[in-house]
Simulated scan of single mutants.
Amino acid sequence: MTSLPPDDPRRRLTVARPDDGAHLALAGDVYTILVSGDQTDGRYCLLDMRIPPGGGPPPHRHDFEEMFTLLEGELRFTFRGEETSVHAGETVNIPANAPHFFRNISDRPARMYCMCTPAGQEEFFRQVADPVPSIDSTPPRLTDAEKAERGQRAQALAAQYQTELL
């Protein structure tokens, strides 16, 4: 039988408060980093995601697990080309490397928690998203040139964060 390693006193208790995290506007959505990889020794990160009607990321895949718990609203997840509707209270796990995306298919904003393991996705978001004052902020209206620049930045950084935009 193996024994557990000793407690690491350098690691601290983390209490995530939605107003304290970094708020980032990305692809029309607003994400708040609740718990970062810096706080979990790289084991995972936790994001609070607000998705407006019609919102959601483009198709993509990445080399880490991603789990979503829908708190409010209704989303349609497309996983390997198959669509599944998800409602408040339901949880979806996306295996590493599987192509996927989601859309808010309702006329109300949706809210969910997203856990990525291991951590790192939050750093990708920091690099490509626009900071906003709060989780309730309206994402900035970007010009076509600004949208193109964000897309080019995401493409340029994707491989560094084990992500492929499809």
Rank of each mutant, 00 (worst) to 15 (best):
L142R: 13
A25C: 07
G56S: 10
E122H: 04
A145S: 13
S36E: 03
T143V: 14
S106T: 08
D7A: 13
D29K: 02
L46W: 00
P99Y: 10
P58W: 05
P133K: 06
P18M: 06
Y44M: 09
Q121T: 12
T40W: 03
E74D: 09
C45Y: 00
L142T: 03
L26A: 13
R103T: 12
C114E: 15
L70T: 01
Q127V: 10
Q160T: 11
G54T: 05
A16M: 04
P139I: 13
A25R: 00
H87G: 14
H23Q: 08
L13F: 09
G28R: 02
L47G: 00
A159D: 15
A22H: 06
P95A: 13
A145I: 10
E74H: 06
D63G: 14
S106F: 02
H23W: 05
Y31R: 06
T2K: 13
L24C: 06
R10D: 12
T163C: 11
R103H: 13
Y113G: 07
Q127G: 10
T143N: 08
D29P: 02
A27L: 10
L142S: 09
D136V: 08
I135L: 14
R126Q: 12
A145M: 06
A16T: 03
D7I: 07
L70H: 01
P131L: 04
